[in-house]
């Protein structure tokens, strides 16, 4: 299983570390092997107890109905999943989440890529300032920035004051109370918060690109834009794949913005899947079985999209 071992170090380097212990090689290697397990066990146990075990428990819960101590297996077993198909709120939250994903992630990643490329230029002045300024939004919590945007986009807030003052708008827009604009504000917020974060990953990737490939492109007469798309971007492919998977994963789990910035409104049209799951689990009459079924839809979406992205990333690479 070459894909599972995930190691690239050539085998010839490995015997070196065992050489000094050659005389009693077997026992010492074995002892080291055991010590190695000792190093891994705490982390591995925690991940099993806090991620894998609950994940399987959630699957079982998703097959059950009832409350509290009166949870029984549903009849038929897939009842909760069947109910999803006719739940218009669920479909709406799924649609909202997909809209955020499809619009926001590409804009963000392309912007981050362009910014990283500009910052990587040797002749650029004030490099540190640009990098810090663009990354700084990442230091603000999701709840905090949601509140800042909520304030700026409130009915008599800054954005309306400026747009009406400049004459772009005649009357204030109720940004957070209309479907299209509420989604728009969430997307703008996400772009603001996460573009710099992805830029840092691209910057790190750019620094490991061999400058001679860029020189070669220059010698061959390629301009900066051509060099960027044909030489830089292909070499950044692993990093682009990583950021695409991270952003997809993050977007499918959006909660804080939906909860704090728009509170899912108006009438659930900006609510995300995770937000709906929270409402079902911990508001009014909790329904853990049904909520767990929704959590499995999110899980499957994340896994399927990651698999597709990895396959596409591999084939191009």
């Amino acid at each position: 299983m070459p894909t599972l071992t995930a190691r690239e170090r050539p085998a010839k380097e490995r015997p070196a570390k065992q050489r000094p212990t050659k005389r009693s090689g077997f026992t010492i290697t074995r002892k080291q092997n055991l010590i190695g397990w000792g190093f891994l066990i705490p982390a591995a146990l925690l991940i099993f107890a806090m991620s894998f075990l609950p994940m399987f428990q959630a699957l079982i819960i998703s097959l059950r109905t009832g409350r509290g101590a009166n949870m029984n297996f549903a009849d038929p077993l897939w009842m909760n999943y069947e109910r999803l198909l006719s739940d218009s709120v669920f479909k709406l939250t799924m649609q909202n989440t997909v809209i955020y994903l499809v619009i926001q992630v590409p804009i963000m990643l392309i912007t981050a890529l362009v910014l990283a490329n500009l910052l990587n230029s040797r002749r650029l002045r004030l490099k540190g300032f640009w990098r810090t300024a663009i990354f700084l939004p990442c230091a603000v919590s999701l709840v905090s920035y949601s509140m800042v945007f909520r304030t700026m986009f409130s009915n008599d807030g800054l954005v309306n004051d400026v747009l009406v003052g400049v004459g772009i708008l005649d009357t204030p827009v109720h940004w957070l109370n209309e479907t299209g604009t509420a989604r728009f504000v969430i997307i703008v917020g996400l772009l603001w918060r996460w573009t710099g974060y992805n830029m840092v990953f691209y910057l790190a990737g750019l620094q490991s690109i061999d400058p001679s490939t860029l020189e070669a492109a220059k010698v061959d007469g390629a301009g900066p834009i051509r060099t960027f798309w044909s030489v830089t971007v292909p070499q950044l492919r692993p990093m682009i794949l990583l950021t695409v998977i991270m952003s997809t994963n993050g977007t499918l789990q959006l909660f804080d913005e939906s909860f704090n910035l728009t509170n899912g409104g108006p009438s659930n049209t900006s609510m995300t899947m995770s937000h709906y799951l929270y409402e079902l689990s911990f508001r009014n009459a909790p329904n853990f079985g049904y909520a767990a079924a929704i959590s499995y839809v999110i899980l499957i979406l994340v896994a399927v999209l990651a698999l597709i992205q990895m396959r596409v990333g591999d084939r191009r690479g």
Binding site: L4, T5, A6, A43, A44, I47, M50, S51, F52, L53, P54, M55, Q57, A58, I61, N249, L252, Q253, F255, M273, S274, L277, S281, F288, A291, A292, I294, S295, Y296, I298, L299, V302, A303, A306
Partner: peptide
């Protein structure tokens, strides 16, 4: 490799248990 798969588990899927 198994532990890396945990990166793909959304928190929502483990929250209720």
């Amino acid at each position: 490799a198994v532990l890396l798969m945990a990166m793909m588990i959304p928190f929502a899927a483990t929250m209720i248990p």
